[in-house]
């Protein structure tokens, strides 16, 4: 079960973003996974619940978007879904293809709660 180590990497990325955004907390973390991401969405969510508590993300929601495995053909440039892990081009049959989606755990977006000072900004006074 290596979902925990992937979630640790995910939380580190979110933490970096949070400090860059001066966010007080994360509300929703969206990730994209597919058939070759090497994770089980349910286990990913479980690991996130556990580990988020220890970070500043207690109460943050993990949304896992499942996508198909996509590939690009180097020979004919077609972009297609890879079905049944049969890695050859859907159009020309070439085995020379690169997977382009559904093969990693991608952090898509984070919704942060930002605390802002209610004093008017300098520009508003002009």
């Amino acid at each position: 079960m290596h979902e925990r180590s992937l979630v640790k990497a995910l939380i580190a990325q979110v933490a970096n973003l949070a400090s860059a955004q001066r966010a007080s907390r994360a509300i929703e973390v969206r990730v994209r996974v597919g058939p070759l991401s090497g994770v089980e969405p349910l286990l990913l969510s479980g690991a996130f619940e556990d580990l988020a508590k220890a970070a500043l993300f207690d109460g943050a929601r993990l949304t896992v978007v499942e996508v198909p495995l996509r590939a690009h053909c180097r020979k004919c440039s077609a972009v297609f879904n890879v079905n049944n892990f049969h890695f050859c081009c859907d159009v020309c049959g070439s085995p020379d293809i690169d997977t382009i989606d559904g093969d990693a755990v991608i952090l898509e977006s984070v919704e942060f709660a930002l605390a802002v000072n209610e004093e008017p900004a300098y520009g508003d006074l002009l």
């Binding site: 990325q13 973003l17 755990v105 991608i106 952090l107 898509e108 977006s109 942060f112 709660a113 930002l114």
Partner: peptide, 14 residues
């Protein structure tokens, strides 16, 4: 202090 939320797009492999 007021709070509002903001969605930040990332698109990075973890």
């Amino acid at each position: 202090m007021a709070t509002f939320s903001k969605v930040v797009s990332v698109g990075r492999d973890v």
